[in-house]
Design a binder for these strands. Structure first.
Lengths: 233, 233
DNA sequence: GAAAAAGATTAATGAAAGGTTAATCAGATT
DNA sequence: AATCTGATTAACCTTTCATTAATCTTTTTC
């Protein structure tokens, strides 16, 4: 599993974009370089980034509008703005100031890396939250033994494959909550593309089949977003 | 009552200290200038500062050690470090990263002011901004769960589409304020033309239908301008 | 106060996304 | 080499939802 921090670099200038993306890769970030706003948005739909580095001057869309759009869909992702002119604070105030920084051009790459690291470390104050992994779970009328990859309904038991087991565990951990395609695919498949998304559908379908003996258990789809596991009363 | 923000400037260099303190006074800060660590500590005992601007290189005491001392007594006060060398992040990590910034010399006074304002405003996040961080909102008698794209009224819940969700979130973010067609279309549709404006109307209509169980919630149209979401009492 | 423009509402449409089952393929195991 | 296992890909069908159209209502302007 790739532990590197994923950064989206939005920069239309070829040479600066190349320079920064290469430098950040050397510094062990997983960099995606979007050369315009449209590509940036597409990237954001399909991946979870830890941070966005955004040039304010873009050819197709104003950098601030792009930032606003990102904030609506992904309110916690921190930004670093790259700007030619010095910004007035009131322009920045529309954003969550706790998760924002800016750098004036010309960009000092080392400075950028430092600020990226500060912002990212601010996100993970401490990783205590990992809740204890129980091994026996209850899902409606089923018993789910994740350690032994078994799903038990009355006297019938289904042995799950590793993937089915992981997926069900993930859905269960986030029950009643949207589990975004991109989150699931990032975590379990490691790659988010057309085929893996198709594959995920096959697995969801299979889980539904396994779970159909209890009709209160629903794996619902949120169009273009992901799935929600819920047990209705 | 003096409403100005009180800043402690710790800087041993005469000319830089004078320059910065005068500049900050012009920018309407209440500046105390301490020329060494001892004076700085004495100042901190007797006053509450909103922010400390601290040169890392001081004659009598290392700036970081001073900072640590201040943090013990006044853990919430944000810092800005002025530094000649570029800092390694791990040096900074000892501090509350949420309340810290740094500037490399030579200092650009305007830049300093901007960063001071950002840090101070981070201490007083506006109500609207705080609301937006949340994912569960209240609209009249409804609960709006934007993360899961749900609108809940009593025991009835409506699942929203992505567009409906974005639009409602935008209106809510700007509640009681005009949301211009132009802004909405630019932001959510990316293009402002006849057809998209028609499309927006369809969505507004749909949101009204979803929200009609609470008659105090109104999405009003301002002719040729845009829409306003408001909850009347 | 009538014509024109803008807005509201409901319904129809079509492309894209999702669901399901079956076929294939790759790696492990006998 | 044959078999088994489990993920991926393919084929085909269904659902979803933004757009467009059609029709009616309100507002503005002269």
């Amino acid at each position: 599993m790739d532990k590197r921090n994923k950064i989206l670099l939005v920069e239309d200038d070829e040479s600066l974009g190349y320079l920064l993306s290469e430098y950040l890769k050397i510094k062990d970030f997983d960099v995606s370089w979007a050369k315009n706003g449209e590509i940036a948005l597409k990237n954001l739909e399909n991946h979870n980034f830890h941070l966005v580095v955004l040039d304010v001057m873009l050819p197709d869309i104003d950098g601030f509008n792009l930032a606003k759009k990102i904030k609506i869909e992904n309110p916690k992702t921190p930004f670093i703005f790259l700007t030619a002119r010095s910004l007035k604070v009131d322009v920045l105030k529309g954003f969550s100031l706790g998760a924002m920084d800016y750098l004036k051009k010309p960009i000092d790459e080392e400075e950028l890396v430092t600020r990226i690291e500060v912002l990212i470390s601010r996100l993970h104050p401490s990783d205590i939250e990992q809740d204890l992994q129980k091994e026996i779970h209850q899902i409606g009328a089923y018993v789910f033994d994740s350690k032994n990859q078994k799903l038990i309904f009355e006297n019938e038991e289904t042995v799950l494959t590793a993937r089915e087991n992981e997926l069900l565990l993930y859905l269960l951990k986030n029950r009643n909550q949207l589990c975004a395609h991109k989150d699931i695919l990032d975590l379990l498949w490691g790659k988010n593309d057309y085929f893996n998304r198709k594959s995920l559908n096959v697995f969801i379908s299979r889980l539904r089949k396994y779970l159909k003996s209890d009709p209160t258990i629903k794996i619902r789809n949120l169009h273009k977003k992901g799935f929600v596991l819920r047990v209705e009363d």
